[in-house]
Amino acid sequence: MNISPVVKVVQPSGILDSTKAESFRKEILNHVENGADIILINFKNVTFMDSSGLGALVLALKTVRAGGSQMLVCSINEQLKTLFELTSMDRVFTIYANQDDFNKAVLSKK
């Protein structure tokens, strides 16, 4: 019997900076507390992220992993890519091109 993992998608939008960092992090943590196995952060509606937004993401990753769940990332634009590369976060996060790629890679695995 295969039990599908519980996947929750978090989809922030606009500018992800210090003004939104805390609520973004809390949304992720709520999913961890509610037993999500996989949390996918879909960045398709984020136009810009700064180091505060990235800080929140890193902090969330620690909590997710501590709770035994997984956090994955998809749909980052060129700006986010630039930020991830400069801070070597492209090596820390598993990044999918889009949600379809994530579905194929993660959900079709049995």
Partner: peptide
């Protein structure tokens, strides 16, 4: 020289310096 990959803060100045 390298900000710990897991650190939450301290990246702003480093980013400026790198760019």
């Amino acid at each position: 020289e390298t900000v710990n990959e897991k650190a939450e803060g301290g990246r702003g100045l480093r980013i400026l310096h790198q760019i």
